[in-house]
C-alpha cells in the first residue's frame, strides 16, 4: 500500500535498515535453531561438526535419553508447582512491599528502603541460611524453595518506581474523598492499573523459579520432590561416577543430550513470552522512561 512516493534516499535507508534487522534477527535466531537442530541430529554428526543448520540424520535418540529418566515427569510437575506457587508468593510480596514505599506519606519510608537495600549487598551466606531453613522445619518441603529469597529487592524497586509514576497522588486523594480507605484503594484502583508491571514481575519471577535448582539441591532430600532442573542436570552428567562400576558411557552423546535438555528446559517457559510480551515492552518502557 503506497500512500506517498518514497524518495531514493528513503528507499535506500529502508532497504538497508531492513537488511540490517534481518541480519540481526538471524544472529539471534541461528544459535537457537542450531540447538534445536542439534538436539534432533545424530550425536556423532554433532560431535564431528557436521550439523550446520538443519538436523543431520534426524533421530529422536537424544530426547529418548532425556525422557527415559524415571524421575523426569514427577520433576516436571514439581517445577510447575514450584513456579506457580513461588511466583504467586513473590509477586504478592513484591506488590505489598512496593506500594507502601511508593506513597509519599508512608511512615518510615526511608528506613524500610534502607533495610531492603542492605540485603542487596549483604547476605547471611549459604550455611546460616540453611540452618535457618532447618530450624523453621522447612527442609524437604515446598516452602524451603518458594519462601527464602522469594522477594527480590531489585524487582521491588522497579515496581515502586512504577507505582510512583503511574498512580499519582491526585488519584489517591479523589478516591479517599469518595470514601475509600488505603486497602480499598490499593486493591481496587492501584492494582488494576498495574497489570503491565505485574506481567513483567510474573515473567521475571517465573523464569527465576523455573530455572532455580540450587535451593532445591540444598534443601530437598527426597527425590520425588526434585525440580526438573536438578534432574536435567543429572542426565547431563550421567555416568560420570568415579566408582568401580562407573564409566563415562554417556561421553559420546553427552554434547547432544545437552542440546536436548536445553530444549526441554526452555520450551515451556518460552511459551509464556507471547502472552506476556505486550505487557512486557509496555511495563519496562514505563519503568525506565519515567523512572
Amino acid at each position: 500500500m503506497k500512500t506517498q512516493k518514497l524518495s531514493v534516499g528513503d528507499k535506500i535507508f529502508k532497504t538497508a535498515n531492513g537488511l540490517l534487522l534481518i541480519i540481526f534477527c538471524a544472529l539471534i535466531l541461528y544459535p537457537l535453531l542450531w540447538i534445536v537442530s542439534g538436539s534432533f541430529s545424530d550425536p556423532f554428526a554433532l560431535m564431528t561438526g557436521k550439523v550446520h543448520l538443519w538436523p543431520v540424520n534426524p533421530t529422536l535418540r537424544l530426547y529418548k535419553v532425556v525422557f527415559m529418566h524415571p524421575d523426569i515427569w514427577t520433576s516436571y510437575g514439581n517445577t510447575i508447582v514450584y513456579t506457580i506457587v513461588g511466583t504467586f508468593i513473590s509477586v504478592a510480596l513484591t506488590c505489598l512491599a512496593a506500594y507502601p514505599l511508593s506513597r509519599q506519606e508512608f511512615f518510615g519510608k526511608k528506613f524500610f528502603t534502607a533495610v531492603l537495600m542492605i540485603t542487596m549487598f549483604f547476605s547471611g551466606g549459604m550455611i546460616p541460611t540453611f540452618l535457618l531453613v532447618q530450624q523453621l522445619n522447612m527442609l524437604d518441603t515446598i516452602w524451603a524453595i518458594v519462601l527464602p529469597g522469594s522477594m527480590s529487592v531489585y524487582n521491588t524497586i522497579v515496581m515502586r518506581t512504577f507505582f510512583i509514576t503511574t498512580i499519582p497522588k491526585d488519584l489517591e486523594d479523589s478516591a479517599f474523598l469518595d470514601g475509600a480507605n488505603d486497602i480499598q484503594f490499593f486493591g481496587k484502583i492501584a492494582l488494576p492499573l498495574s497489570k503491565a508491571i505485574m506481567a513483567v514481575m510474573v515473567l521475571f519471577y517465573g523464569v527465576t523459579h523455573w530455572n532455580s535448582w540450587f535451593s532445591a539441591f540444598l534443601y530437598m532430600s527426597s527425590r520425588e520432590r526434585y525440580p526438573l532442573q536438578l534432574i536435567l542436570r543429572e542426565i547431563l552428567i550421567q555416568g560420570n561416577t568415579s566408582i568401580a562400576g562407573g564409566g563415562g558411557d554417556n561421553d559420546l552423546i553427552g554434547e547432544g543430550v545437552k542440546f536436548a535438555t536445553m530444549v526441554v528446559a526452555t520450551v515451556p517457559i518460552m511459551c509464556l513470552y507471547p502472552f506476556l510480551q505486550k505487557y512486557f515492552t509496555k511495563g519496562v518502557m514505563i519503568g525506565s522512561l519515567k523512572g
Binding site: 535418540r61 529418548k64 535419553v65 527415559m68 524415571p70 561416577t241 562400576g245 562407573g246 558411557d249
Partner: peptide
C-alpha cells in the same frame, strides 16, 4: 529402551558406591 549397560544396571543396583569389595 536404549539404555547403556551401565544405565540399565543402575536402575536396580547401587553399583557398589559404598564400603564394598568389587
Amino acid at each position: 529402551d536404549g539404555l547403556s549397560p551401565q544405565q540399565a544396571l543402575q536402575t536396580m543396583t547401587t553399583r557398589c558406591q559404598h564400603p564394598s569389595y568389587v
